[in-house]
Design a protein around this nucleic acid. Sequence first.
RNA 1: GGGCGUUUAGCUCAGUUGGUAGAGCGCCUCCCUUACAAGGAGGAUGUCGGGAGUUCGAGCCUCUCAACGCCCACCA
Length: 871
Amino acid sequence: MTDTLNELSSKYCAREIEKEIYEFWEKNDFFVADNTSPKPSYSIVIPPPNVTGVLHMGHALDGTLQDILIRYHRMNGYEVLWMPGCDHAGIATQNVIEKNLAKEGLTRHDLGREKFLEKTWAWANDHKNRILEQFKLLGASFDLSRKRFTLDKGCSDAVKKVFVDLYNKGLIYKGNYIVNWCPRCQSAISDVETNYETQEGSLWEISYALKDEMGAIVIATTRPETMFGDSAIAVNPNDYKYKDLIGKSCVMPLTGRVIPIIADDYVDKSFGTGALKITPAHDPNDFEVGLRHNLPQIKVIDEKGCMMKNEFVPPQIQGLTREEARKKTVEMLKEHQVLVRITPHTHNVGTCQRCGTTIEPLLSTQWFVKMKPLALNAIDAVKSGKIKFIPQRWEKNYLMWMENIRDWCISRQLWWGHQIPAYYHKETGEMVVALENPDPNNYTQEKDVLDTWFSSGLWPFETMGWPDTNSNDYKKFYPTTTLVTGFDIIFFWVARMISMGLEFTNVAPFSTVYIHGLIRDEHGQKMSKSKGNTIDPVDLIEKYGCDALRFTLTSLCTYGGQDIKISDERFEFGRNFANKIWNASRFVLSNITKSSNELKDFGELSLADKWILNELNQTVKLVNENIKNYRIGEVASVLYEFFWNKYCDWYVELSKIEKNEAVLVYVLNAYLKLLHPIMPHITEAIYQKMLQKIDDENSKNAILFAKYPQYDSKFDYIEESKKMEMVFETIKSLRNLRAEFNIPLSAKINIVVDNNEKLFLSIAPYLNRMAKVDDVKFDKESNIEKSAYCTVFDTKITVPLADLIDINQEILRQKKKIEKLEPELKSISARLNNDKFINSAPSDVVDKTKERQQELLCQIDLIKQTIKKLS
RNA sequence: GGGCGUUUAGCUCAGUUGGUAGAGCGCCUCCCUUACAAGGAGGAUGUCGGGAGUUCGAGCCUCUCAACGCCCACCA
C-alpha cells in the first residue's frame, strides 16, 4: 500500500482513500471468480444497465445491495461471482441515436440499416464501458473480466437457439393481430411497455341511417376518426331497444358504405347509447368481435398514425394525422347533421413507455411467444417455494400476472437488436426458422428484431456459457443465488427470466428475488430528467464519499422495501459516521504500544472489557441474522448504534483511564469486518493500517477476504454487562445533576453511596473520568445537609453540594422525578393486581413486571425519603 | 372494477413472534475536555389517521371508515 495509508491522516478524505483502495483490490484481481474453486458458490447477475444511460440513484441502491451480499458471502467462505454487463436496450438506444441524427436533420432511413447500426455500435461500445466504470465508483466488487453485453456473440447465439427451440416447440408463432403500435417509434411494443394515462376526452354520438327504411341507430364512440374502418354496428342481444334492428343494415354517414347490425354480448347496454361501432383493424376488443362474426378488417390508419389513402377514407380526410382527422371528421359529421350529442368523457389512453406517444392499436403481422405453457412452471416454482420473493408480498403480484398472462409480442420493427432468425425464400416466400441462413443466395433474413427483454430474459444463463452446459462457469455458478432488483421490472424481467430459465435449464435461475424500493426525491416524486429533480450519485460520491453514500442508502432500506426519499443533505448521515469511524480508529491505533504477540492475549478482563466484548458479540449475532434475512437497514442501524453509542461513547472513553489494548484492538478489528460489506473502502483502509500492528490469519492481507465474525457464547458476559449498565446510569445521573444545577466540570463533586459498596469503590476511576467525581464514599446512613440525590436502581447516591445548590430547587427536581415514575407504577400495579393478568400472561412477563414494580417502588421510596429529609 | 402499500415526535422514517414507543435531522442549554465541532454533555416533544372488536394487555391481530400513493384491468 502507498503512503497515504501508512498514516491515517488526521483529516478524513473519503475520495482519496476510496480511489486508492479500489485500485488496490482491482490490481490484485480480488474480484475475479475462480470457477474451479472447491468452495461453495454464491452468484449474482447484475440487472444489466442500459447502454443509453449513466449511473443513477437506482443503480446506486441496487448495486450497493448486491455488493453487500457479495462481500458478505465472500467473507463467509463462498466462491462468489458478481456478473457485470450491459443491456443493448433496443428501443431506448435506437431512440437516442435517432434523436442525435434528427439534430442533423437526418433519419435512420437516410443512413440505411448498415450505417445506422455502425453508428449505434460505436455509441454502445463507448457507453457500455462508461457505465460499468461508474459502478466502480460505488465500490462494486464485480468480476469485470467476465463482463457481458446482451448483443455479444455468446448472448446472440443463446438468443438464436432459444428462439429456434421455442419455434420448433410451437411456442413461438407469427400472426396477424392487433398490437400496440407506437407511431413515433414505428414499431410494435408489448403490453407491459404500454402505459395508461387518464385523459379528458369526449364521447361522440353519431347517427347511422338504417338501410331501406326510415330511422337510424345512434352509436357512441371516443374515436370518430376510426369510423371509416367500421365493419358493423353491434348491440347487446338482450337489449330490447334494438331487438328489431339486429340483422338489418345501416348506411354509414360520409361514405355511404353499408354495414350490418350485429348482436354481441360484449356490448354493455348501459354505456353510451348501447350501440357500438365495430372497427376490427383499430381496436383490440372490436378485433375479437370481428373474429367472432367474421367481419372484414378494414385498415384506415397507417404505421405513422396518419389516415390512409384508400377507398374507405374520404378524400378530405386522407393523409391527415389521427388528431387532425378526428377534428375534420367531427366537422363533417356536424355538417351532415348526424352528430347527435357530445359529452365529456374521461378515459384511459395507452402511451408508449419509451416516448409517451399515444399508442395506436393496429392490425399487424408480428411474432409472439405463447406464454401460458411457459407460465405453468414459472408459477409452480414460486408457489412451491423454489423461488422466494423478499418481501413476500411481491409473490402475489407476480402470481396474479402470471396466471392471467397473455401472449408476448416479441417482434420490433427496429434495427438495433437481435434480428429474428427466420429466413424467407426470395421467390417462393417459404419461411425457415433456423440458427443459420440455409442458403444466403436464396433466402433473406426477417427484418424485425426481438424485444430487448427477450435477451434479458436469458441473462442468468446466457452469461454463464449456456448452451454449453459443460462450461466451468455454468457448472460452478449457475443457477445463481440471489437476484436484486426494483419492483418496477418484475414483469418485464424477473418473470421472463424465471419462465425462460425453467424452460431451457430445467432449474430456477435464482432462488431468492430481493426486491427493494424505488428512489424518490424529497417530495416523494419519481426522479426523472424531465422533472429536473434527479440527484446524481457521482456528485454525492464526490461530495460525501462512496462509503457515506452506501451507508446512508443502506440505512434507509426497510424490510418492507418501502420507497426511499432522499435529498442531498441526507447523506451527511453517512459522511459523519465515516468520519467518526476514521477518527476513533486513528485514536485506537495511535494508542497501541504492545507487540502483535502481546495483543493476542486479552490478559485479565475488566468489567468494561467484558461489557464491550458482550456488546460486540450481541452485535455480531444481530448483524448475521439480519443480513441472512435481508433486513439490511437493520444491519446498518445495529452497526451504527454499536460503534457510536457503545464503543466510542463509552469504551474508548473509558480506555483513556484504564485500557486493555488487546481488547480495544480486537473489538475494532472485528467491527471493521462486520462493517466491511456496507462500507468497504474505509474499513479496508483502516484494516491495512491495523495489519502493521497485529497478525490476522486467514485474511490474505485484505479485509475483503477476512473471515466474517460469528457469534461466540464465550463472550456472553451477561452479569458483568448489567453491572456496567449501572455504572453508566450513575454517570448519566451525575451529569444530569451537573447540568441542572449548572455545576461546571471544573468544580469537583464527591458522592456517598448507601449500597453496592464494592462495585462503586471499584469504579471510582470511571466516575472520576466521566463525571468528574473526586471521591466515592460508602455510608449506609449518610446524612449530609445540603445535598442533591440520585437513585440508580437500588442505590441512593448522595452528592453533598454545600452552597452550590438551592435546596428548594433540589426538592422540586426530586418531585419531578416522582411525577415521571408514578404513572408507570400505577399502571404496572394495576396489572399485577389483576388476577387475569397473573393467570394468563406468561410467567416470564409476570416476573419481569414484578421486578419492574419493585424497582419503581424502591426508587420512589428513596426519592420520597430524600424529599422528606430536605424539607 | 381488482390488488397492494402508506398514515407513529416539527421533518424523514424505524418499530422481528401483542407486554403502554425509538433513530437521524431540526430545536433549547452548556462545552474548542488534544480521536472526532462532520464533535462532546444535558434537555424538550407523540390520546402511534378515526371508530369498533378480540385480549389480562393492541402501534402491532380482526372488522370498518377516511386520506394519500402505486400496480393490474381497459366499457366503445
